[in-house]
Computed example of a mutant assay.
Amino acid sequence: MLCVAAAGAILALAADRFTLEWTHSVTRTQWEESWVAGPEGLHPVEARIAGPGAGMEIPDGAWRVPGGWRYRVQVPPQKLVVLASSGATPSGWRVCAAGQCHDLALAADAPVRMWWGARCA
């Protein structure tokens, strides 16, 4: 089960695949990552971006697609993913799984935490 803790609440999603979306704080371009979740952790596998942003360049091996770039993410599975906020973005994080999307609360002093677990409590 994908567990997401944000703004004092815990969201439990019965899904092993999800996307994570956000808007870059400086360039205001859309970023989206596809993830796989399981007992080994959360693993980003592919990303789609409209273009580079300050501190976030298009990686080597990326290929051009209509509206931007795609690339394979080369990061091992993570037991815990912490999503911070600069407070400069127009919107927060969005998690989509099993055909439903959830906008996560955005607070500079309260990061979003995600993990895989049998129970989220």
Rank of each mutant, 00 (worst) to 15 (best):
H24L: 01
P111T: 00
C101M: 08
P59F: 07
L104P: 08
R70V: 02
R113L: 12
C120P: 06
W93C: 13
E33Q: 08
V45W: 04
S25T: 10
Q78I: 05
V73D: 03
G87A: 13
W35Q: 01
G8N: 09
V112Q: 07
A12P: 03
M114A: 13
V45K: 11
V82S: 12
P52M: 03
L2C: 05
P66A: 10
Q100H: 11
A107V: 11
M56V: 15
L106S: 15
C120Q: 03
W63F: 15
I10V: 05
M114T: 05
C3Q: 12
R17N: 14
H24M: 01
D16W: 01
A15Q: 02
C101S: 15
M114R: 07
L104Y: 00
F18K: 00
D60Q: 13
G55T: 06
P76H: 09
A37C: 06
A110P: 04
G51V: 01
L106V: 09
M56N: 14
A15M: 04
R28H: 10
P59L: 02
L104F: 05
A47C: 12
P44G: 01
A88V: 14
R64K: 15
D16S: 11
G92L: 05
D16R: 05
W116Q: 05
R72H: 10
R64V: 06
H24P: 01
D103H: 09
D16E: 09
T23P: 00
P39M: 08
H102Q: 06
R113I: 06
A9T: 12
I58L: 13
A108W: 15
C96E: 14
A15D: 00
L20I: 03
A50Q: 15
H43T: 07
P39H: 10
S25A: 14
V75E: 07
W116M: 05
G55C: 04
R17T: 08
Q100P: 06
E46S: 05
E40N: 09
E40G: 04
A9Q: 15
M56Q: 13
A62G: 06
G55N: 07
T29C: 03
A88D: 14
D103C: 03
L80H: 07
A7P: 11
W69R: 13
K79Y: 08
A84H: 13
W93Q: 06
V26W: 02
A97K: 00
T19P: 02
A15G: 11
G41W: 01
R113S: 11
T19S: 15
I58F: 05
V65L: 13
F18Q: 01
L42R: 03
G53N: 02
C3Y: 03
A98M: 12
D60W: 09
R48L: 02
W69F: 14
V26M: 00
P44A: 04
A47S: 09
G99P: 06
V65I: 14
E32G: 02
I58P: 00
